[in-house]
Design a binder for these strands. Sequence first.
DNA 1: TTCTGGGCTATAGCATACAGTCGTCTAGAT
DNA 2: ATCTAGACGACTGTATGCTATAGCCCAGAA
Lengths: 253, 253
Amino acid sequence: MTEWGGSASPGGANGGRRRLTAARREPRAARQPLERPAPLRQAVYDVIAEMIINRELRPGEHLVENELAAQLGVSRQPVREALQRLQSEGWVDLRPALGAFVHVPTEEEADQLLATRTLLESESARLAARQATPEQVERLRELQEAGEKALRDDDQVELVAANAALHAYVVEMSGNKVLAELIAMVDRRVRWYYAPIARSRGREAWDEHAELIEVIAGRNGRRAGEMMRRHTERTRESYHQRRKEAAEREALG
Amino acid sequence: MTEWGGSASPGGANGGRRRLTAARREPRAARQPLERPAPLRQAVYDVIAEMIINRELRPGEHLVENELAAQLGVSRQPVREALQRLQSEGWVDLRPALGAFVHVPTEEEADQLLATRTLLESESARLAARQATPEQVERLRELQEAGEKALRDDDQVELVAANAALHAYVVEMSGNKVLAELIAMVDRRVRWYYAPIARSRGREAWDEHAELIEVIAGRNGRRAGEMMRRHTERTRESYHQRRKEAAEREALG
DNA sequence: TTCTGGGCTATAGCATACAGTCGTCTAGAT
DNA sequence: ATCTAGACGACTGTATGCTATAGCCCAGAA
């Protein structure tokens, strides 16, 4: 999503000073009327979101505008505007006169996110199946193959990416952009919450994917929806299981 | 997530210069640590959203920051921050270097909003039914009675409010706050899009409500979900019907 | 020791100022 | 008449400055 990769050192005292510079317009031989340079606030948004996602900024942490602005080499305004958006999308809470704090998800909320994701993804699979074209099914099989390869190579990073790509394509196939928007939002927050304990279910999950693809190929909407529901339900159970384990380790340690 | 400071007075009785003043803190005898004065940007957000909803600002219209700021008696910053949020929630589109434009919904998008709302509301009814307490059912019946009264009095405004209240309570009963958030967002946009042609289905809709309440009272989740799905489906058809009629009138006129 | 009150500092909220860009209008050339 | 170049006006994006408030620290009283 963002090419502002790079991990800053934790501890806050002095992160790796990332600097953003306004994307200087290229000499523009052929100008594309629709693609305009993204404002700084967009880059700021991306960076902060990324920092939240990979825990450089911890839940509950106070985001001080001045610090962020200095770190990123911009003024406070782009930061403030980015924070507005981050709030709307559930990443931070803005408390009047106090500022922005990284959202602290409760376990209840996390579970509701998962449940909602199940609902939305299931519907997207149902719609996808009903309108699936042979070309789309072919594409699904390619994505599946990419996952299988990652599985064989035991490449966790690639596996997660392949999984996301497959699910995203199903959503795209549904043709419902509103649904896609909601899923993107919910999904991103789910992944964030469960990132510390997440691990791909591996073989099992990809077997389910393969099965799902065949059902979609058969254009059986009802079954596809049900399969996706069960599939994400299992992921949910897997999360709960791991969470319980983590809690137990915590208690022992 | 989004707490509505207060639904501003509808109807836009005053087309003229509205002025916002920073909510001056009351002498605060007992201070509530959680309730802090809302920033100006919140008021700005409310006013602009309201103006969009009741068509003082038309789809596609360019929102000039200076004008809005002057109209509201504030500087550009609160306006800009409000616009960020309005974009996240689908009310305006922000085009780099060009500014904010009231979102122009396509017919496709409107239909997808409706379809998504059906999905979400149906799920909320299912969950509500599964956990319904006698007190909650009692409350539902009160809300139903309010609707029936409005129906008898032929009070359209009250009818719409009662309808919204009933649906909102079902959502609340579901206990899923994430779901509630999504429904609130989708629902608001649906209502906006269809406002020009919307009219309550009246008797019919409230008969369906009554039926739904009894199913919820029986704590039958599956049936409740199905009923709500059918109920919102019918509303959707009603919208389509009216839209077609409107289009035909347009063609003739 | 524990509680109360007053100043102090850090920080958010808002306003103002400046710079760069987009679109348009007009004048001049073909 | 049509097209192009250049200048102008309007508006957004970003930076800086100012003010008020929240939370803290510490002194002093009970």
